[in-house]
Every structure is written in structure tokens, then in C-alpha cells.
Simulated assay, not measured.
Amino acid sequence: MTSQTITASASGTWKLGDLTLNRIGFGAMRLTQHGEAFAADAVPRDRDQAIGVLRRAIELGVNHIDTAAFYFSSLRCANELINRALAPYPDDLVITTKVGPGRDPSGRWLPHATPEQLRGQVEENLRRLGRDHLDVVNLRIVGTDSIAERFGALAELREAGLIRHLGLSNIRPHHLAEAQAIAPVVCVQNMYGIGASSEQREFLDLCGEQGIAFVPFYSIAGTGRTAGATTGDCPEVHAVARAHGVSAAQIRLAWTLHQGPHVLAIPGTGDPDHLTQNVAAGSLRLSAEDVAALDLLRHETA
């Protein structure tokens, strides 16, 4: 089977609440511009190319798209691109979005939303995506403060039918327990990749024990974060990649999926060739020796 014919179904499936999705999804952060995400001087991506990548993702079986209202550049908005490319949406498509942070029209980051502002953010996502409800909304936070008031506001919107399922992003374990006392949590979206700490691994395992999807971000980018993948992969990653005849980025994705059946991947790209490679990574089966060698790479900050 060539990479051109491999679809997202090769990665297996997981259920977010009552929604079944393939474990290889698509992150929309890089759709709007070239270079580092959120950089003020970044060049907007060609609109037709971005729309083409989204449509190709669906053709390749991707049925999980991760987005946010704050994914925009000077000329492009990820949610509007998704709407333009994919509406009317496939019945099995799950669109996950994030609320909490915000950016003004100039791109400047705003303080985290109050409970009252969260409703406006949800409504903005609904409007730009052209939906009457959101499949999954993650509350993204920074810091260790209580999230009860903010998560409670989203739980009320869920009860009102504007949100189907709730998740959390960039959290600590105590946040998960706090949220679960208010409403069900179907997913946790945290930074995770090769080199993750033992504490990060323990949290990933905790989510699995509770049947909660764990959705890593920066699993390819690693230390590059919003700037994208670096070229400095260590020899161990390159060795495994050579043995399988694939790229280091594909090995990073495959390793991520090997962390547990509840782990989902949302690699983002605006490049159609990279999209095909990312989806194909879902079919890679690493040996126990491969996984063990990569597990030992704790010195890298993922």
C-alpha cells in the first residue's frame, strides 16, 4: 500500500462521547499563513491552497478537525476556510474548537475570557463555521487557578444545546477533576511528544483509565512549537525513520499514536504533500524495540 492510498481509517478509531472519529485528524492552526503561527509578519497562505488541503483531508478519511476562532492571519480565518471548503459538512465530521484566549483584529492577544465573554466566543465559532451547535468545545487555560466558573459557563451552553461535548486544553490533573465535578469531559488537549516527562505520561495514562481522549499538540513540532517542526531530530528518531523508510515527522506521529488507543493526533499543515504523509503515519506499526528506544528520549523538551 502506498502513502497515496492510505487513509485516516488506518489509524483506528476512538469515540468522543457519542462521536466516532479516526485517530489521525487535522489541526487548522497552520492553514492561515506560512511560517510561525501567530507571527505578525507571516505571509498569508494562498486561499485556494488552504481550501484544497481541507478538501483533500476529507478525501483521505479525516473526520476530526481541530480549530479555534483565534486561528487567523491578516487575510485568512481558519473557521471561515473550513466553512468555505467543507460546508455542507459530512455527517461524520467532528469539528473541535477552543475558547478561552482571544485576539483582537490586529492579532494582539487578549486576557482570558470571563464566563460572560466565553458565550461570545462560542457564538463567534458558530457564526464563522456556519453551525447551529459545536461538536466539541475545549476550554483552554494558562496557569493553575480554578476553572470552575469558566467551565461552568460552558456547561450551561451545553445544557442549552449550543455545545455537544466539552473538553479541556493545556491543563493540570487537578483541573480535570474540578471540571468533572461540573460536567462530563470527553477529551484533554495538552502538549505531548517524544521526550515527554514522566508526569506528562502519567496524566496521559490517567485519561486513558477514565476513557477520556488525550489529544497532544506540538507532537511533531516539539521544541519548535508554533514555529513548526525543527530539523534537529536526534539520531534515534532518524534511525527509526530510516528503518521504516519514512520521515522523522511520521515517526513522531506514529510514536504518539502508540501511547494508547485513546490518544488522537491532530497534525496541522497547509501543504498537501505533508498532509498525505501525516495521514499515512497512522498506518505505521512500530516494533516494541522502536517504541522503547524512543521512550528513552526524556532529555528533549517536547
Rank of each mutant, 00 (worst) to 15 (best):
T230V: 05
T230Y: 02
D135N: 12
F217D: 03
V263Q: 11
L168P: 07
V137T: 06
F72I: 06
T226P: 02
G61R: 08
T96D: 11
L162Q: 01
A293Y: 03
E289M: 13
I82A: 12
A254V: 05
L253K: 01
L110K: 10
L294M: 13
A39K: 14
A265M: 12
P235G: 06
S73H: 04
E236I: 15
G130N: 13
V136F: 02
H299Q: 14
S74V: 08
A248W: 03
R140K: 15
C234H: 09
E178W: 01
S169Y: 10
P88C: 03
S3L: 14
A281F: 13
V122M: 10
D145M: 02
L157A: 02
R298G: 05
V94L: 03
G245N: 03
R76S: 09
D104S: 05
D92S: 10
T223F: 02
I163K: 00
R285E: 06
R140T: 08
L297G: 04
A155C: 02
G228Y: 01
V188T: 13
P105T: 08
A239Q: 10
S283I: 13
I58V: 13
I82H: 00
H258Y: 09
A40Y: 00
H258T: 11
A57Y: 04
A37T: 09
T20P: 04
G282N: 12
V122I: 11
G130H: 15
H64F: 14
A177W: 09
V237A: 12
R201W: 15
W109E: 12
Q250M: 06
G35T: 05
A213Q: 04
F70S: 01
H34K: 15
R76Y: 01
D295Q: 11
P261F: 10
L75N: 15
A10T: 00
D91C: 01
V136D: 10
H174I: 01
V237P: 06
T67S: 08
M1W: 14
W14C: 07
P184Y: 12
R252N: 10
